[in-house]
């Protein structure tokens, strides 16, 4: 079995199995816990539903915190959107998704994909640089660094595979797929799960505060 066969066969397969099982395990293991009952009377009878607005409104910091969070907000947005575009816009990725789900859509020209991939990588570097230079603000732990490495790795290896840098293409492609597999495996057990938690966490706080008539 070649490295590529291992990568796009058992490696990515088991990674997906762990990703799916682990994510659902963690989600249900939390969401099926008891619900705290707040028995106090809400400020408005149906006002609590306004709390769900927080899920969307928190997508951008309020003007109060604009200046303080500007760097991080902009760079993080660049990173998240660039990564998302790369993940769903590159031909090879669409082919993989299609082989998994049957869904397909037009791809971006490779040059555009590479440019956006570089944006994603550079913004990720900008974020880690800030984290490293402001230790008192970020209180980073091992998980933060592992997560960063496992997110940066697919970007770096993907760009290298495309540019035919480093080892031969099929080896680089295999390394790229393996790095993604590692990220998939890490996902359910790490802060990467924030990509799902943010909905619940924002809603939870939105509801708590809306109960008291406060829009956060």
């Amino acid at each position: 079995m070649t490295l590529l066969e291992f990568a796009r066969g058992p490696a990515i397969h088991w990674a997906l199995i762990i990703l799916v099982a682990g994510t659902i395990w963690r989600l249900l293991g939390v969401l099926a816990l008891t619900r705290g009952g707040d028995l106090s009377r809400p400020r408005d009878a149906f006002g609590n539903y306004k709390g769900y607005r927080t899920v969307f409104s928190r997508a951008w910091p309020s003007s109060e915190f604009n200046v303080a969070t500007r760097y991080q907000t902009i760079v993080a947005y660049l990173f998240h959107f660039a990564t998302l575009i790369v993940v769903v816009g590159i031909t090879a990725h669409i082919e993989f998704i299609q082989s998994l789900t049957g869904a397909s859509w037009p791809a971006l020209p490779n040059a555009v994909g590479v440019a956006i991939g570089i944006v994603a990588l550079v913004s990720l570097l900008a974020l880690i640089l800030r984290r490293l230079t402001n230790p008192s603000i970020y209180c980073s732990n091992l998980g933060d660094y592992i997560t960063w490495i496992l997110v940066a790795a697919p970007l770096i290896t993907g760009l290298m595979a495309f540019a035919h840098l480093g080892p031969r293409y099929e080896t680089m492609l295999a390394i790229h797929i393996l790095s993604v597999a590692l990220m998939f495996i890490w996902f359910p057990f790490s802060k990467l799960m924030h990509s799902i938690w943010f909905v619940f966490s924002r809603a939870q706080s939105g509801l708590t505060y809306a109960h008291k008539g406060v829009q956060i």
Partner: peptide, 13 residues
């Protein structure tokens, strides 16, 4: 409860 758990789970430092 689930609420506290969600908050504890979602911090990204």
């Amino acid at each position: 409860n689930a609420g506290e758990a969600v908050w504890l789970e979602s911090c990204i430092h």
